[in-house]
Simulated scan of single mutants.
Amino acid sequence: MLLKMNQMLYYQIASSDNEEAAIEYKSRIADEHADGLLIEVPISEKTGRYKRLFLGDELSAFFVSEDGIKNYFDSHVIGFKEDGIRLIKICKPDPDRIAKVQRRSFLRVSAELEIAVKQSDHVRFVCLTDDVGGGGISFICDGKWPLLPEQTLECWLLVPFRNGTIEHAFFKAEIVRVVELVSGKKQAMIKYVSINDSERQKVIRYCFEKQLKFRNR
């Protein structure tokens, strides 16, 4: 188990409010029990405000190991403890349910997500992805669109999360390969050439949630 005392956790809290669900909090691990972790009251990275948690609140969390790898997992609040300060007890993740994301080896999953593509001022279209990942995606579109390797695209990806919120991830990408399918459509494999870390994290979080859903079947 890579989790340890005094380690910092970063997470988002499931909420029906889109703005609230997008806020990232952090907490230090204060203690470890057989069935859970005791963490300090979460504080917003952006505003510096503390957040009250309730029994059953669901968390999408990650921590960074010493070698710089982000480790994602799901958890939920299972109790509280007063020890001079208020501590929150969250469920300890099973090691097999922690997804590791390395900078040069991003998680990739099959997914049909809506994506809006701008090739030029006169060529814009909407289609569905075939797979998505932290390093790039592939999508399938109508065969009439003039796609060629090394072309640059501007894309807006619709990213749905498990808690019901939906966000857009914007990025610029380069076409790596185009395949003409038997159906008459085209499959384009693209890699990100310009994407903010916050936008990439949306895609990675989606991949992580989908991978966990598949593992739990």
Rank of each mutant, 00 (worst) to 15 (best):
D142W: 13
R104T: 08
R124E: 10
R97Y: 08
A99W: 11
V117S: 06
R86T: 09
D96A: 11
K92W: 01
H122N: 13
R86F: 06
S105W: 05
S120Q: 13
K118T: 08
V109M: 13
P95V: 08
D83C: 10
G133I: 00
D142A: 13
K89F: 02
D130C: 07
F139E: 07
F106P: 12
I115K: 04
S110R: 12
I140H: 10
K89H: 04
D142C: 11
H122P: 02
G134W: 00
F80L: 03
G135E: 11
L87D: 03
L107S: 04
D142E: 15
G133V: 02
R97F: 07
I98M: 05
G84A: 06
E114I: 13
K89I: 05
Q102H: 14
V123Y: 11
C91Y: 12
L128W: 09
A111T: 03
I90N: 02
F139R: 05
C141R: 02
C141F: 05
C91L: 12
A116Q: 12
S105I: 04
R97G: 06
E114S: 13
V101H: 01
L128S: 12
H122W: 09
V126H: 12
G143P: 04
C127M: 03
T129N: 04
K100Q: 12
V132I: 15
F80C: 08
L87N: 03
Q119C: 08
V123P: 01
I88D: 00
R108N: 09
G143N: 04
A111G: 07
A111S: 12
G143K: 03
K100E: 12
I85R: 15
I88A: 04
R103L: 11
G133C: 04
G135W: 01
S105Q: 13
F125M: 01
R108Y: 01
E114L: 13
G135K: 14
R104F: 06
A99N: 15
I88Q: 00
I98A: 04
G134K: 10
D142S: 14
G135D: 14
R97D: 08
A99L: 15
V132M: 00
T129L: 00
G136C: 03
Q102R: 15
V126E: 11
V123T: 09
V109I: 14
I88C: 05
V123F: 11
A116V: 10
D130I: 01
L107W: 06
K81S: 07
R97H: 11
D130P: 04
P95Y: 00
L113S: 07
S105P: 07
R86H: 09
H122V: 11
G143W: 06
C141D: 06
G143C: 06
A111V: 01
L107A: 03
I98V: 15
Q119G: 02
F139W: 02
R108F: 00
E82I: 11
D94V: 11
P95R: 04
D121K: 15
S110K: 12
H122C: 08
I90K: 00
G135N: 15
K81T: 08
A116R: 14
Q102V: 08
L113P: 10
R86Q: 09
S105C: 09
A99V: 15
C91R: 14
Q102D: 12
G134E: 06
T129V: 03
F80Y: 14
I140N: 06
